[in-house]
């Protein structure tokens, strides 16, 4: 028989066990949450904070879902593969119909749906909402084939602003026109009425979260032809980059065992 443990040792062992188990479960828990919130293709209600802040702030109460008169919004249930309990919508099923009084936003108790982001001149303004951005797939959009269709253009609540029709000659027939829909990213709210209206089997125009679609040119690109943009040069500072140049002669490089480098 081994000696009985002293109280002191028992205490230390129990504490160590507690801390060890907590660390273990903490990692499992964190890993689960990291995966569970990884869904990037979720469309949020109007006025939603940036995804990271939204997930932090949304209390998952569903008041926005209940406020929506069109049953557009749902709360993510287990199995939806979205951050559980958070509100989202699928425009192909039910788009956001852009109510002018935006009933879903003021009911939010936590500010995860931010009233100020959908307000202009102290009035609620759904037209500045940013739920996502419409993207046209030119391969499946029949307007790009030369078949006349302007379903998305007509469905757009910002008619002739967020989507315009671009005319060009159809060289294939020589006598017809292409009437191609063009989405304007600075006006599109991502309401999804275009995706809902699209006549193809699987929508040729789709709403995606904006940051997933849009790139970023970087601040060192300045539009010289744009007076406003060129103003950024006024505060520009010079940055010198130095590239280290090999001191060896070119002949050395040719004489080095190239094959050895390759294999």
């Amino acid at each position: 028989m081994s000696k009985a443990l002293s109280d002191r040792r028992k205490f230390i062992l129990n504490m160590a066990r507690g801390v060890g188990l907590a660390t273990m479960s903490g990692f499992i828990w964190s890993a689960f949450i990291d995966e569970a919130t990884a869904a990037k293709l979720t469309l949020r209600p109007p006025g939603a904070l940036k995804e990271e802040d939204f997930l932090k702030t949304c209390i998952k109460c569903g008041l926005c879902v209940e406020a929506c008169p069109y049953d557009t919004l749902s709360l993510a249930a287990p199995g939806d593969n979205k951050a559980i309990g958070t509100p989202f919508f699928i425009p192909r099923d039910i788009p956001c119909y852009m109510c002018t009084d935006i009933p879903c936003v003021p009911v939010c108790p936590t500010g995860a749906l931010d009233e100020s982001s959908v307000t202009t001149n102290e009035k609620l303004d759904i037209n500045v909402a940013d739920m996502g951005l419409a993207i046209v797939d030119e391969k499946s959009c029949v307007a790009f084939w030369g078949i006349q269709c302007d379903a998305c253009y007509r469905a757009c609540p910002l008619l002739d602003v967020a989507i315009t029709i671009e005319y060009s000659k159809n060289e294939r027939t020589g006598k017809h026109a292409f009437l191609k829909p063009v989405v304007h990213a600075d006006a599109c709210t991502g309401c999804g009425m275009c995706e809902h209206a699209c006549i193809t089997e699987d929508a040729a125009i789709k709403i995606l979260p904006r940051d997933l679609v849009q790139g970023k040119a970087g601040s060192h690109y300045i539009k010289g032809w744009d007076k406003e943009d060129e103003k950024r040069l006024e505060n520009a500072k010079e940055i010198k980059t130095v590239t280290e140049i090999s001191k060896k002669t070119a002949v050395d490089s040719l004489n080095s065992n190239l094959l050895e480098d390759l294999y």
């Binding site: 903490g26 964190s30 949450i33 919130t37 309990g85």
Partner: peptide, 13 residues
């Protein structure tokens, strides 16, 4: 876990 992950941890499980 909430503090580390920046999310209300229990609400997700």
């Amino acid at each position: 876990v909430s503090a580390i992950m920046g999310l209300a941890a229990f609400e997700f499980i």
